[in-house]
């Protein structure tokens, strides 16, 4: 299959831990098969920073915790035909969303001033203009843009990602046996 017939795929990690990307790399030698099916556009995997064209599929790891995340996610929505939320942070907010019940100022104080492991004599909270402002709470991806599919898991296993992606790219019904979507 020629490069221009292959599906274009983009990925990003927003308010996530890169665990989902690690899980994607965990498909091991199947990455060669994947390379037969897709070319990667904007992604941390190849370090392409900007979209080079329209993409078929965008994989979203992590929810939105700051304004930059929102911008990136909206950019993905604009450039991708299909968006998939990958992992619990993207689908539900995940661990970062634990702060959602705590007022923002208290979160910052705990992180930069009062936390037991914090050494910050000046008491300054990072506020460089380069730093994106953080949101009042962490939003799962589908609350910010329309998301087409959700793959739960923390992270979804390599097999889950593989099965789902291959099914999507080969236009076959996805078959996720119970073991791949059971998490307790």
């Amino acid at each position: 299959m020629g490069e221009n017939q292959k599906a274009r795929i983009a990925t990003t990690s927003l308010a996530g831990c890169f665990g989902c990307h690690m899980s994607l790399l965990d498909i091991d030698e199947r990455i060669l098969q994947l390379a037969e099916l897709v070319v990667f556009d904007k992604s941390p995997i190849n370090d392409i920073k900007q979209f080079t064209g329209r993409c078929d599929v965008g994989l979203i790891e992590g929810g939105c915790c700051n304004e930059h995340n929102v911008e990136v996610l909206r950019d993905f929505r604009k450039h991708c035909d299909i968006l998939i939320s990958i992992g619990d942070c993207a689908t539900m907010g995940g661990i970062p969303a634990l702060r959602n019940t705590v007022p923002l100022q208290e979160c910052l104080d705990e992180a930069y001033r009062d936390g037991p492991s914090v050494h910050n004599p000046s008491g300054m909270i990072p506020n460089d203009v380069e730093l994106p402002l953080i949101l009042d709470k962490v939003y799962p991806a589908h609350e910010v843009v329309k998301i087409d599919y959700h793959l739960p898991g923390c992270p979804p296993s390599a097999d889950t990602l593989w099965e789902a992606l291959v099914a999507l790219l080969t236009a076959k019904p996805v078959e996720l046996p119970y073991e791949l979507v059971k998490y307790d």
Partner: peptide
């Protein structure tokens, strides 16, 4: 959603 952060920053 950035109002709180704008006022803090």
């Amino acid at each position: 959603s950035v109002k709180a952060a704008e006022s803090i920053a």
